[in-house]
Simulated scan of single mutants.
Amino acid sequence: MMRFMKRVALLGATLFIWTMVIAGNGAADQPTLSKIGPALHHPWGMDFLRDDELLVTERRGNLLQINLTTGNAHQIGNVPDVYHKRQGGLLDVMVYEDWVYLCYSAVLAGGSSTAIDRARLNADSKTLTDRITIFTANNPSRSGHHFGCRMAIPRTGSQAGYLFTSLGDRGDRDNAQDPAHHAGSIIRLHPDGRVPDDNPRHDGWAPEIWSIGHRNPQGMTTDPLTGTIWTHEHGPRGGDEINHIISGKNYGWPTVSHGREYATGVRVSKHESLAGYVDPEWIWDPSIAPSGLAFYPHDATMFPAFQGQLLVGSLKFRQLYLVRMANGTPVDEQIVMDRAIGRVRDVTVAPDGSILLLNDEVTGGVWRISR
């Protein structure tokens, strides 16, 4: 069943909301917010290289390694050239086994497309080696909009070991209902870029596509217990969505949408639900501009009330949300952090249970919520 969140009067003082949601047993048990490492220029994605070492991308084309204990940082060489225009650039990073995966907007004849490289780090962690491009979306565009570019590889469940990546519609909404286009889809690959034989392969679908009908998904995660894929995506002026991604399904954009046109406020579609399309699990109206998505682990103990729940960053309201799950479905939400660090671009959970955030500013950086 679709859950609809009409957002009204959910703003308040940072300290009040913080204390209410992350309750402790006393002053010494209250959460702290601290910045780690140097200022970063529009950081976009992050993942753990080791428990105390984080890889972070800057949209302008830099990859950095940051020590979470000391704050020391250094830049890593041999990253791909990127189409750094508007929303494009070096976007997500993911570590899987011995490989580093980068999702970015590639410079191509005719403009750019969302692409994925994988590489290894050399012995001193200063340079990427063996870097190859394992996927490039078809139909390049000169648009600087809607690249998507979140990645996830489930560690458990029937999809364990497959690489899932979100692709935005590149600012052309018709792409999302044209399954011959990669734009506006979720794709599924083997980690080396090969196309699995059991991808949906519906009539007219590009072989890499797992689902279609997506606008600009900038959050993707997997349930650590089941391995199921969850995403969220931007809607225009309302209609931000959380979706449970299922093979071969159509998630509606723009045929089915709660969003409104930016210029006129008129609804994009007269349909909020329609047979043959998957309803969102959760909707924000007005938009929060979600970016970054993570499950708080079921066995993490730093914030036990968060176990098994979703954490969602907001660019527009500069907040961190906790979306509570019951029986695998979102049921309500609360604000965890309100306007304390700026635009929240990405969120992840450290091995010790602390929560790491990226704020997407000219002088942004890595922040940690811990206690």
Rank of each mutant, 00 (worst) to 15 (best):
F4D: 05
R7M: 15
V8T: 15
A9H: 13
T14H: 15
I22W: 14
I22R: 15
L40D: 08
H42D: 13
W44D: 04
D52P: 03
D52Q: 13
L55V: 07
L55H: 08
V56L: 01
E58L: 05
R59E: 11
T70H: 09
N78L: 02
P80D: 10
Y83M: 09
K85C: 04
L91Q: 00
V93R: 01
Y96I: 04
Y96H: 14
D117F: 05
A119C: 13
A123E: 14
T129S: 12
I134K: 08
T136W: 12
N138F: 06
P140S: 07
R142N: 14
H146G: 00
F147Y: 02
T156K: 07
S158V: 13
S158Y: 03
G161E: 00
G168E: 09
D172F: 01
H181A: 00
I187F: 04
H190P: 09
P196L: 00
A206W: 03
E208I: 09
I209F: 09
D223N: 00
W230S: 08
W230D: 03
E233L: 01
E233Q: 03
E233K: 02
G238K: 06
G238P: 06
G239W: 02
I242S: 03
H244R: 14
I245S: 02
V256C: 03
H258F: 15
E261D: 15
W282Q: 07
A300L: 05
F303M: 06
F306M: 14
Q307L: 01
G313D: 12
L315S: 02
F317D: 15
Y321A: 14
G328V: 05
D332S: 13
E333A: 06
I335H: 05
I335L: 00
V344M: 06
S354V: 02
L357N: 02
G364R: 04
G364H: 05
I369S: 03
I369H: 03
S370Q: 13
R371G: 14
